[in-house]
């Protein structure tokens, strides 16, 4: 279970998260929706432990563990995965090397044996096929020269390989055409099960047609202002955030 209580955080001295309370029971997929600038990515970065995103109050626990006390790599080893809204380019770092290093780091942390190059390649090929991605993606530098859609799919490929127990997807749907969107959604849905928990951050309801969430939360100006079932997403799509923003102000 992911439990966020009274979480406040600031960036460069500016308060962004202003008291977030959010609980995601293990095995559920929750959506976080909200207008631009409401703090969705900030929440994602705080969960992943990015430097410069200073927690000023509250707590986050994952299966009873204090997530905020862990280094980013320790959070990954504990099962957390963040799909970045803007995946980072790593010139000169081969995608295959990157993926294998990450996978083996996490396997090592979990006490599992590391995969050699051949074993890794077999696994990576299988995951690529499942995501309808070309094998040459492994040979390129991480995200360098990738189209927007390729970058997002590369995030999903990483997730499919690292098999997190807690995934935070930050606007993984933005900039995708309908086919790519379906591939991404299928990738997430394939992981769903009693041991997979996810926070799906999105600006639009579109993705939630494909990944149907258990709950929807609306984030406005650093606070969750409403929570509800999947129908809340459709309501927001119809009526927009304006009413909620006015309420929050």
């Amino acid at each position: 279970m992911l439990k966020i209580e009274g979480l406040t955080a600031e960036v460069e001295g500016k308060p962004i998260l202003k008291g977030i309370d959010l609980t995601v029971p293990t095995g559920e997929v929750h959506a976080v929706m909200g207008p631009n600038g409401s703090g969705k990515s900030t929440l994602a970065y705080v969960l992943a432990g990015r430097e410069g995103y200073a927690v000023t109050g509250g707590s986050v626990t994952w299966d009873g563990r204090d997530l905020l006390a862990l280094e980013p790599e320790e959070r990954a080893a504990a099962g957390l995965f963040l799909a970045f809204q803007y995946p980072v380019e790593l010139p000169g770092v081969g995608n295959a090397t990157f993926l294998r290093t990450a996978l083996n780091a996490i396997r090592r942390a979990r006490g599992e044996p590391e995969l050699d190059a051949m074993q890794f390649l077999r696994l990576a090929r299988e995951r690529l096929r499942a995501l309808s991605m070309p094998e040459e993606m492994l040979k390129r530098s991480v995200n360098v020269g990738f189209s927007g859609g390729e970058k997002k799919r590369n995030e999903i490929l990483q997730m499919a390989l690292l098999r997190p127990r807690l995934a935070v997807l930050d606007e993984t749907d933005s900039g995708l055409d309908i086919d790519a969107l379906r591939i991404v959604a299928d990738g997430v849905n394939a992981m769903r099960g009693p041991d997979f928990t996810a926070l799906v951050i999105t600006h639009y309801q579109r993705l939630l047609d494909h990944i149907v969430p258990d709950r929807v939360h609306v984030l406005v100006d650093g606070r969750i202002v409403r929570s509800g079932g999947p129908e809340l997403a459709r309501e927001l799509e119809r009526e927009g955030y304006a009413a909620l923003q006015a309420q929050a102000a």
Binding site: E51, V88, L90, G92, T101, A102, I106
Partner: peptide, 28 residues
Amino acid sequence: PEQVFYLRSRGIPEGRARAMLVEAFLHE
């Protein structure tokens, strides 16, 4: 720092993450 964080968020320890980026720079 953004590149270092990206690697660390994938479970790669900080020292190794930094080493990978230096190697990439040299490789280039």
